[in-house]
Structures are given as structure tokens and as C-alpha cells.
């Protein structure tokens, strides 16, 4: 089955042209309702209801342990891998309840890509890192693989740096390059949503700037949800920002509003650096 180039199917109407400011409300791509999550006895998320719109960058901010990463990992059900996790409430992506018993988590993860805090390229060549993802989903022809590898690396702004050494180990790349390779790998299979869990936290400022440029570029094609502890970063790249505190969603709004005119005291304290 050829899956890598299938059109992105979303039942709702397309959002307006890419790169827009938060515009008129469209049908949300991700919608959570009364979502709660427990690790054993500890409650990590409390009653989260939120909407995330298509082709925008949504940033999750908040102090450590506030549940922002946990929530992110709910969207592709990576929390399934952790023993003793219990979720209640609903998450709908493009209208479908992703925790429903009929949902195939593999299919979900194919359509909701993820980039991790720590770059985690496979100990294979640069080329094989991306080809692995493609082969998983049925692309086997060499020429198609080569095409998509190149396109993904170009999209991730890595092509010029690695085109002469595609078959060297991915571990020989610098930290920033490794993280861009992981992004290239994630977008190679054309997900609809890209989850990023503090993708630049382990990088130096220059590498961080490149990743941020890349995110702004990628939002033309993907819906991006990014967890960050860096408020300037959230302000620079996101359209919407959600602020979490101790497992609660305190406030969510257009980024400019959150940073200039928050409605909650806690949010104001946090964005002005009074705590956290």
C-alpha cells in the first residue's frame, strides 16, 4: 500500500492559507474534553479541555512537572508504554476518539508524529534513519525512497549539510543536526500533526534558532504542538499558547494575548518570570 503520499484527510474545512495569524475559528483538529490522567495514585492531568487548530503552532508552557509533556504524549498515546497509567475523558483528533478500543495506535502514531527532547537517531546511517520510517509504512522502491529522503531532509533544512555523506552514521552529526534529522524522519511519513517535546532544550542558541526557523517553515504543512520551558521561544514561534500549572490548564489563548494581556494572575506571574 502506498501511504506516504496520501492526501491529508481531515473532515473539517481547511483552515485559511498557511502562516496566518489566529484567524476565524475553524473546526479544531485536536479536541480534549475533561481529560484526566493518573500515574498509579498520582494525578498528572486534571480535567483538561482544550482545542488545537490546524496548521498552527500551539505551545504548551508551564513549570516543570505541570503535566505539559504528559499531555503531549497523550496525543499519540505514547503513555500507553508506561505501566500503571489511567486516562479518563476524551481526546478527539479530526473528530475521532483516539482512546476508543477500535483505534489502531500504530495508525495513530503514523499520523501524529513526534520529536523528542533528546535527539534519538537510530544508530544507522542518515539515509537509513529516514528510510526506516518509510519502509515501515510500505515504501520500498529505491528511487521513491531516495526522493522522499531528499525531500524530507530539505524540508528539515539539513540536506545541504549532509547530502555528501548520507551513508555515514547519524551519530556522527552534531546535536542540532541530529535533532533536525529526527524532525526529517518524523515528517518523512507525512503526519498530520507533529508533536515536539522541548525539541531545542538540549541545544546551543545557534542550533536552537535553526530549529525555530524550521518550525515556522513546517507549520505551512503541519499542525505543530510544542512543549517548551522557554517562554521567549513560545512567544517567537507559536500562534496559540496554553499555560499549565500542577496538572491544570490555567489558560489558553492567542500567544500575543497570553504574553501581553493574560487573564489569570498565575499566568501573568509565570510569563513575567515571577516564578517557575
Amino acid at each position: 500500500m502506498e501511504t506516504t503520499h496520501r492526501p491529508i484527510v481531515v473532515p473539517a474545512a481547511r483552515a485559511p492559507a498557511p502562516g496566518n495569524e489566529p484567524g476565524p475559528p475553524a473546526e479544531p483538529l485536536i479536541k480534549t474534553e475533561a481529560l484526566a490522567l493518573h500515574y498509579g495514585q498520582t494525578q498528572a492531568l486534571k480535567n483538561i479541555s482544550m482545542e488545537i487548530r490546524e496548521r498552527m503552532v500551539t505551545a504548551f508552557i508551564g513549570p516543570s512537572g505541570c503535566g505539559k509533556s504528559t499531555l503531549l504524549r497523550c496525543f499519540n498515546r505514547m503513555n500507553d508504554l508506561i505501566h500503571n497509567v489511567r486516562t479518563t475523558g476524551q481526546i478527539r483528533i479530526a473528530g475521532q476518539d483516539i482512546n476508543h478500543a477500535d483505534v489502531d495506535v500504530i495508525e495513530l502514531r503514523k499520523r501524529v508524529g513526534m520529536v523528542f527532547q533528546r535527539s534519538n537517531p537510530f544508530p544507522k546511517s542518515i539515509y537509513e534513519n529516514i528510510a526506516y520510517a518509510l519502509r515501515l509504512h510500505g515504501t520500498r522502491a529505491r528511487s521513491r525512497l531516495a526522493d522522499i529522503v531528499e525531500r524530507s531532509l530539505r524540508q528539515a533544512a539539513l540536506w545541504e549539510e549532509v547530502k555528501d555523506r548520507l551513508h555515514t552514521s547519524a551519530l556522527s552529526l552534531s546535536g542540532g543536526q541530529q535533532q533536525r534529522l529526527c524532525i526529517a524522519r518524523a515528517i518523512a511519513i507525512q503526519p498530520e500533526i507533529l508533536l515536539m517535546d522541548e525539541p531545542a532544550s538540549a541545544l546551543d542558541p545557534i542550533a536552537t534558532a535553526r530549529i525555530e526557523d524550521l518550525i515556522l517553515d513546517l507549520k505551512k504543512e503541519f499542525t505543530i504542538v510544542i512543549v517548551t520551558h522557554n517562554m521567549q521561544q513560545a512567544a517567537r514561534i507559536s500562534d496559540h499558547t496554553a499555560f499549565f500549572y500542577l496538572g491544570d490548564l490555567i489558560e489558553m489563548n492567542a500567544t500575543s494575548t497570553i504574553f501581553t494581556n493574560p487573564s489569570m494572575k498565575q499566568t501573568e506571574d509565570y510569563v513575567t518570570g515571577r516564578f517557575g
Binding site: 508504554l81 523528542f116 534519538n120 537517531p121 511519513i189
Partner: peptide
């Protein structure tokens, strides 16, 4: 084996068995 590698593969939509066999 670093758990990150397993996560990376699973997050790409690989099944558990594919992750085990290939990574």
C-alpha cells in the same frame, strides 16, 4: 539499549514487533 530508540521507532508508527526486529 537506550529507551529513546524504542520510543523513536514507536512514535514513527512502528509496531512493537517491528521495533524489536529492526531496532
Amino acid at each position: 539499549i537506550l529507551p529513546g530508540l524504542r520510543e523513536a521507532s514507536l512514535a514513527l508508527g512502528a509496531t512493537k514487533l517491528e521495533t524489536i526486529v529492526m531496532i
